[in-house]
Design a protein around this nucleic acid. Structure first.
Lengths: 218, 218
DNA sequence: CGCCAGATTGACCTACTTCAAGTGCAGTGG
DNA sequence: CCACTGCACTTGAAGTAGGTCAATCTGGCG
């Protein structure tokens, strides 16, 4: 039942970020690392950023998959509690964390907007917890595709084809699976007639089937 | 690497909740359900509350395991995006959601405190995502025990024995496992000499071993 | 003592991982 | 223009962690 009715991010918060520095980084480079002292907080302007943690054995869990308008860098304490990497070429707005704090302390309207923003981030995290804890591989992949679809609709684009800037490995790292299992799930969804491939992108052939496949396990 | 350095919750937020209604509910009863219109937001005063979502087949994913001082009921939109149940007999403070909004809109210091609170909630959610996505069953259980331990230390009690008010099924519902797997993991941790049982509670026999067992998969 | 719900343990099954070959395709250079 | 190469992806085969089903075990309580 995880659903996320959503508008875009509060204007007042966007405005603050737009007053900051604009940083361009290329695909694959690191924006910040886990445990690094917090300097700035960020807002994605263009491209996709992933927020992730690494296990000691090097395996990666992607915690969030970010689109333009999303925020990152909010942590408890003095250090980032996650890392962040550019998945595509990316442009972000950066402001010092202290500036965010100052604005919160100064402007109550900003606090209201910020609370809304963080509630939305939390909601996405809860969706992912549910997916990881209770869905089987095919359902995870189907849910992920639907999420991408809704997200690009919210950004004003058409839902299908679903633009897939990430590799199978990236998808696997979000969904707690292996690359191979993700690939097999894609193949199954295609065989079921739910989706088809268009280069790197995914056509939604039958939304009903895809939605059905996204349902919970067993 | 998930860690959560943490103090207790901001006094200014606690004070607002304490000005609200105090509600006592008994173990197993429902505080609110997913999709129910939001009326109140809550702060746990005594006992343990779980925040959860249910799959269509009835299986439950616990999203958070709450202790006194923790908040719940924050959602995006007009409806709760999770359910909440009393795990033990519980007392909570309740205030209308509108009152929280009003306080945010009025008092910037409150906004700062609230932002800190939600960041802490998010941090816990990220820990759980990592656990579900990248740890094996024994590591999940060990991590969970360590989390309980740290939590009761933070509330001023001793770390060991770890008080376990929840059933194996509850633990399973947090960790994305079955009751049986949780039970087996407990038995393994006991056989390893990391823990021992004292009635329903768990003695930490060797913190080093328990910590080692909590490490990431493979 | 006997009951009963929760917990443990065992045996078998299956979904996912792991390891290992392919396959397709975009970019490069002959 | 087309082979060569590299990389992401797909597919297959075998291994395994955890799920499922079922039989005890345990401890608290009437």
């Amino acid at each position: 039942m995880p659903t996320t009715p959503d508008l875009s991010s509060p204007q007042i918060v966007l405005d603050l970020f737009r007053s900051g520095r604009r940083i361009e980084i290329s695909a694959g480079s690191v924006l910040f690392r886990e445990n690094q002292p917090i300097a700035d907080v960020y807002c994605v302007d263009r491209g996709n950023v992933v927020v992730a943690r690494y296990a000691d054995n090097g395996s990666r869990q992607i915690l969030a998959f970010l689109f333009p308008g999303d925020f990152l860098g909010i942590s408890v304490g003095a250090r980032y509690n996650t890392g962040a990497e550019a998945l595509t070429d990316v442009a972000v707005w950066a402001i010092p964390q202290a500036m965010l704090q100052a604005e919160l302390a100064r402007n109550p309207a900003f606090g209201v907007a910020f609370a809304d923003m963080t509630a939305r981030i939390l909601d996405n995290a809860l969706d992912l917890i549910f997916t990881l804890g209770r869905q089987k591989s095919r359902a995870r992949v189907a849910s992920f595709l639907l999420k991408l679809m809704r997200r690009q609709e919210r950004l004003g684009a058409s839902g299908s084809p679903i633009h897939m800037p990430m590799t199978r490995q990236d998808v696997a790292d979000v969904l707690g699976l292996t690359m191979e299992t993700v690939s097999r799930s894609f193949s199954q969804l295609k065989a079921m007639g739910a989706i088809s491939f268009a280069g790197a992108d995914v056509e939604v052939v039958d939304l009903g089937k895809l939605t059905a496949a996204a349902e919970v396990k067993s």
